[in-house]
């Protein structure tokens, strides 16, 4: 137990987190750049536009989150809305509840 508290894990070090972020951004930039170099077998004219998939994917994710945030205002309910216990407090079955 005490051993766990002392142990430093991979992402406890902020430098490692930064490295992952930098690697991901670099991968995105390289992949976007490859759009100019690699020949793509397009089936639709929009696919031939530079960065179409990158921009579309980014806009889709942003739109999704923004719309979902608005939906949350409308749909959000407390966990005991149906007078039931929180969803996952029961011990998994087939196991020993008394263990």
């Amino acid at each position: 137990m005490s051993d766990d508290k002392q142990k430093t894990y991979l992402f406890d070090n902020p430098r490692n987190v930064r490295r992952v972020v930098v690697a991901l951004v670099a991968a995105c930039v390289i992949l976007a750049g490859l759009d100019l170099v690699v020949h793509r077998h397009v089936s639709h004219p929009w696919e031939a536009m530079f960065g179409f998939y990158a921009v579309y994917g980014f806009v889709a994710c942003v739109l999704l989150v923004l719309l979902a945030k608005e939906m949350r205002k409308l749909l959000i309910r407390k966990e005991d809305y149906y007078d039931e216990a929180p969803p996952t407090d029961n011990p998994p079955s087939g196991e020993d509840p008394g263990a």
Binding site: Y56, A60, L64, V65
Partner: peptide, 13 residues
């Protein structure tokens, strides 16, 4: 096609 792309981005999210 555009909707499927949107859904693919969504499932990735």
């Amino acid at each position: 096609w555009l909707a499927l792309l949107f859904a693919s981005a969504g499932v990735f999210h």
